[in-house]
Computed example of a mutant assay.
Amino acid sequence: MVAYTEFVRLSQSSDSEERGRAAHFAAVAYLSHSGPADEQAALYAALIGFLDDPSVKVRAALAYGLLHSAEAPRPIILSLLHDSAVISRAVLQYSPVLIDADLIGLVRNLDLAMLLSIAQRSKLSARLAAALVARGERQLTLRLMRRLEIGFAEALLADIASQQGRDPEMRGALLARKDLPAQVRLMLVQMITEDLRQARIVKGALAPDRLARLLRDSTDTALSAIGEREASKTHRAYAAELIVSDRINTRVLLHAVVTGHVMFFADCLAELSQTPRDKVFMLLESGSRPALSALLGRCGLKQATRGLFVQLVMHARSADLADDAAARHFVVTALTEEMITDHDGVIPPELEEAFAYLSEQNVMLARKAARGVMAAFASEAARPMALPVAAPERLALSAA
């Protein structure tokens, strides 16, 4: 407790430290006041008086006392907002008294340090965040993109991705956002692919052909994984847009099934065949071979390709392709052998792309499935490795 006479003495002191203490006492007393109205009016008048104090320390002490309270007097907060930079930045960042209408008008003219203070407010509306992004400051935009709780319009995120997607930090911040549109996410993945393709450390570590296969496989996986997530949210626009942009082909459809992204596969079939999604799911789960072939025919696939997909669906019904690399390897191996057998080793032209894809996958999946197998076996094996007995070395004698 501080006596009013002592408070008056401190507030009239020539020492800025003592006046600062008085300013802080007045702020705390005003916010916690529950007494007579005349007492509150006196405290309010004291707060107003400290606004004219020549010392920044005193005004900062006043601001510190009021900064985090929604009950702080609005006129005083607005006055402190236009005080020295150190006080103004604190008010911009912390005061809950300020509303969007106060801040949006300031955003157009504030410097970067002030804008960053606003960007660090505990609560930031989408409207205010969009106004901050409109300033075009990279550091500011990056900070806002990393605030995942703020919702941004899809068009705004698309603009940022197209303009600044080559910036690795910005790209990472965008990809971490759940509200990023699927097509924008795919565009950023393609940028990453191109950057990896050009990176000297990557180019020097892998042969060009193998690098091209790995990047193509990774891009296809990303495309179908994004599609799987969109399909789980019943968003069919992604598949439709890929079809319109001619991004869906035999390889992509095969990859979707082989990687276990069957919901995306179903969406693609539904769009291509103009068949209800529920009916497509029913056919994939339990439809007969002729029914599946008819559905694939409506998608525009040729007879030989339809037969391949029917075989793939039949295998996929009894295998966990989403998580089991060994199951994927088994299915791909079986499909490859069936194609060779069915066509007597002469693969039709319409199946060459599919056969090339399956051959690539066979090698990649064999490597994945084999990793760790020998180590696991060795830890459990009770007998030594069986090796053939070496034959005794024979002397070669010259003929007599």
Score class of each variant (00 low, 15 high):
Thr193Val: 08
Ile192Leu: 09
Glu194Arg: 12
Asp209Trp: 10
Asp179Ile: 01
Gln198Lys: 14
Lys203His: 09
Lys203Val: 08
Met187His: 05
Leu196Met: 09
Val189Arg: 03
Gly204Cys: 04
Gly204Asp: 14
Gly204Lys: 04
Met191Gly: 05
Arg197Met: 14
Ile192Tyr: 09
Ala205Arg: 13
Leu206Tyr: 14
Thr193Asn: 13
Glu194Thr: 12
Ala212Asp: 15
Gln183Asp: 05
Ile192Thr: 09
Gln190Leu: 11
Ala207Leu: 13
Arg185His: 06
Arg185Pro: 01
Ala205Ile: 06
Leu196Gln: 13
Ile192Ala: 11
Arg197Lys: 08
Leu196Thr: 07
Lys203Gln: 11
Ala199Asn: 10
Leu180Ala: 00
Gln198Asn: 14
Arg210Leu: 11
Arg200Gln: 13
Leu186Arg: 01
Val184Asp: 00
Pro181Asn: 01
Gln190Glu: 10
Ala182Glu: 02
Arg197Leu: 11
Arg210His: 14
Asp209Asn: 08
Leu211Asp: 05
Ala207Asn: 14
Arg210Phe: 13
Ala205Gly: 08
Pro208Arg: 04
Pro208Asp: 11
Ile201Ala: 11
Val202Tyr: 10
Met191His: 13
Leu196Glu: 12
Leu186Glu: 02
Val189Gln: 05
Leu196Trp: 09
Leu196Ala: 12
Leu211Val: 03
Gln183Glu: 12
Val189Phe: 08
Lys203Cys: 09
Ala182Asp: 01
Lys203Gly: 12
Gly204Phe: 07
Gln183Gly: 00
Ala199Thr: 08
Arg185Ala: 03
Ile192Ser: 05
Ile192Lys: 03
Pro208Ser: 05
Leu186Asp: 02
Asp195Gly: 04
Ile201Pro: 06
Leu188Pro: 03
Leu188Val: 04
Ala182Thr: 00
Val202Lys: 06
Leu180Arg: 00
Ala207His: 12
Arg185Thr: 02
Met187Ile: 04
Leu211Trp: 04
Thr193Glu: 07
Met187Pro: 03
Pro208Thr: 07
Arg210Pro: 05
Asp179Gln: 06
Gln183Tyr: 04
Leu186Ala: 02
Ala205Thr: 04
Asp195Met: 14
Gln190Phe: 05
Arg185Trp: 01
Leu180His: 00
Lys203Asn: 05
Arg210Asn: 12
Asp195Gln: 15
Gln198Gly: 09
Leu186Gln: 02
Pro208Asn: 03
Ala207Ile: 04
